[in-house]
Amino acid sequence: MNSLQELKDEELLKRVAQNDEQAFCELFTRYKNKVFNLVYRYVGTYYEAEELTQDIFLKVYNSVHKFRGESRFSTYLYRIAVNVCKNYKRKKQPTVVSIEDPEISTDLSAPASSEPDAILAEKKKRVIIQEVLDSLPPNQKTAFILSKYENYSYAQIAEIMKISVSAVESLLFRAKQNLKKKLLPYKQRGEI
């Protein structure tokens, strides 16, 4: 008998369909951080990311019979994740993220600094970027996050969002133009 770690996602999924909780746990372990990060980067707060990640995996569990294997499981999972995030943002009032929020993380690339001023400036920058990202139309925001933060290719983004590659190109072009228009004044003032 194969150990669960050696099984492919699709094989695990078949087991989940037969109520194998261990298999579901293995799938969760494989993708929890990937999904959690995607959601966190989309909504911007840790506690919302926690709630939505639960919703996403519950949705996967409930719709396991609907998976027909036309795409890879990871694509299917990210598609659910993106749709859950978009629906959540559509229904919800815009989050007011404060720079005093300890949940706001800083850039990976930023040099680790213990200077309070540097930390505050970094958090302020994060808040500005998140607000500007939130102001983008949902599809532009989704495409941008998948491309810039998750490093997906245009073809992968097209598959996740169920649109053509040329539509992804167009979304990303417009997203960047919008970001430039909104962020350039901050950049010129040295705030980001």
Binding site: Y61, S105, T106, R126, Y149
Partner: peptide, 22 residues
């Protein structure tokens, strides 16, 4: 210059109790 200044937020880790909640 603009895209260079928009770096991905630092990686976060799913809380350990998440699977229990699900």
């Amino acid at each position: 210059m603009l895209l260079d200044s928009i770096k991905a937020p630092a990686e976060v880790f799913a809380p350990p109790h998440l699977f229990a909640s699900i």
